[in-house]
């Protein structure tokens, strides 16, 4: 009689480790749940549905007439998002070329510096950038635009340098082989390959920036957030609803537009 061959994906020890890992994970979750529960005042949660229903009843109907005072801040919001994206793009593109392994002029110096710029931009939320900038530049749209731009550098820079690293190297070789200079290789072999990615990333970031710029007003950096803050402060719930509707419509419109643009480019 021949022995039936035995095959297992994991040996005993590995299987045991995986099981212990799962048990540890479940214990951690249970412990966290308890910690959260202890820190929650359940008295408040108990009547949450009553509170929510109460707030909703105050919020409807929206105060439609308030809209005429929202056009201007809404326009500001769009401008903050668009100008911020453009400014971010202008800085992010060179940074991405410095960060990509295959285009950086120096791996020892330029690349780490570019990566540092990208990481620091990404690690700070635009609302926090805006808070800092309102202190530096004073309240208003400029602080909002710069905040959006600073946050966009990291996002666009990271996605773009990854796209640059993924280009087809033989197309680059082919252009080098014609006797083209480094800059010509950039414009004739690398740029055509990353253009669709760049267009897609920019439109996507613009879309995100519209949403982010609606809250910048909370810290005084211009846009519709200022009206939202003021309305919440005076408990003018019908106005808050109106602002929500305006923001929702803008976001939906921007998503529709960016989908169209991306489709047209790619």
């Amino acid at each position: 009689m021949t022995a039936v061959p035995v095959w297992r994906k994991r040996n005993r020890r590995e299987a045991l480790t995986v099981w212990l890992g799962w048990i540890a994970g479940i214990l951690l979750f249970a412990w966290s749940w308890k910690a959260v529960s202890d820190a929650t005042m359940w008295v408040f949660v108990a009547d949450a549905h009553i509170q929510a229903a109460d707030m909703l009843s105050r919020m409807v109907p929206p105060r439609w007439s308030y809209m005429e005072r929202l056009w201007r801040p809404l326009w500001d919001t769009l401008n903050i998002a668009t100008l911020g994206t453009l400014l971010g793009l202008a800085i992010a593109v060179p940074v991405a070329f410095l960060a990509a392994r295959n285009t950086t002029p120096s791996r020892a110096f330029a690349r780490p510096l570019a990566l540092l710029i990208i990481v620091s931009s990404r690690s700070i939320n635009s609302l926090i950038w805006a808070m800092l900038l309102v202190t530096v530049l004073g309240p208003g749209m400029l602080a909002g635009i710069v905040a959006i731009a600073l946050r966009s550098i990291g996002f666009i820079g990271k996605l773009l340098y990854e796209a640059i690293e993924e280009i087809d190297p033989t197309q680059v070789e082919a252009i080098q082989a014609t006797g083209a200079s480094r800059l010509q290789v950039l414009t004739h072999a690398i740029a055509p390959q990353v253009m669709p990615a760049l267009a897609g990333i920019s439109v996507y970031r613009w879309d995100i920036n519209i949403r982010e710029s609606t809250v910048l007003g909370l810290v005084g950096a211009g846009g519709i957030g200022l009206q939202l803050m003021a309305s919440v402060n005076v408990l003018a719930w019908p106005q808050v609803t109106m602002i929500f509707i305006a923001i929702l419509a803008t976001v939906v419109a921007s998503e529709w537009l960016s989908a169209k643009v991306r489709h047209a480019i790619i």
Binding site: D168, T170, A174, A180, S181, Q184, P192, Q193
Partner: peptide, 30 residues
Amino acid sequence: ARRRMGMIFQEYALVERLTVMENVLSGRLG
């Protein structure tokens, strides 16, 4: 020196998103 040596590749190595004309003319970049 590279201008005097034309290279032809296995996977063609054309710049895919450019037109035929742009690809041919890129041979003059040097």
